[in-house]
Design a protein around this nucleic acid. Structure first.
Lengths: 105, 105
DNA sequence: TTGACAGGCAACCAAATGGTTGCATATTGT
DNA sequence: ACAATATGCAACCATTTGGTTGCCTGTCAA
């Protein structure tokens, strides 16, 4: 799960995921065209990381490689990690408020 | 939002958040006691990052500094970013399946 | 078959990151 | 006042990260 978090930590990689969500199954060069100002190799490295984190799956099709979004790890993060923080959301907020108030004593 | 993602990318920092969720309002030294094998300064740096990302709020209380969990940024991530991936979850999965099948042609 | 196109691999580089040690400052209790 | 406690700050170090350039491999089409 750490890999997923680290993969999501970079804005360029989140952007790549966004582009795949908008248009799934793109090739490396297609993705490069969408992210100008970065070499193909840089994009390639980002995609490799995303693939390692299992956030995208790839299919080799002749000489090109199609990239597909895999939403499962994001779902798992939402379920297992964010969920428990959501549950204590209001609770923690009221605690915080109380603490801030009592801090003025 | 980038700060939040980067802050969440580190396992030690996620651990600190977990500890605060379990016992909110801890001081630096209390948190250090919970994470052995790391100097106070290391923990302090992590907390500074979490604070910068607005994931924790702090209250100075005499010579000690209390740390409170702020679940709002996590909620925002869940809403704005994960939400849209969740919505396309099954859709992307079926697309992926189709692509994998047609890849065998 | 032979370009041209899509991608992979490796070396290299600068900057960011996670951690340390050492010292300074502020608060508290006796 | 003063020693102990709680934290802050700065310099330093090793590793990781994001990026580059240069070259190699594989595939398609004329």
């Amino acid at each position: 799960m750490d890999l997923v978090f680290k993969a999501l930590a970079d804005a360029s990689r989140r952007d790549l995921l966004d582009r795949l969500r908008a248009d799934n199954g793109q090739t490396l060069n297609q993705l490069c065209a969408g992210v100008p100002g970065m070499t193909r190799q840089a994009v390639s490295k980002h995609l490799a990381l995303l693939e390692e984190a299992n956030l995208i799956a790839t299919v080799k099709r002749g000489r090109e490689k199609l990239h597909y979004l895999n939403p499962v790890p994001i779902h798992e993060i939402a379920e297992r990690w964010i969920g428990k923080f959501e549950r204590s959301r209001l609770d923690a907020l009221s605690e915080l408020k109380k603490a801030l108030e009592s801090g003025d004593e």
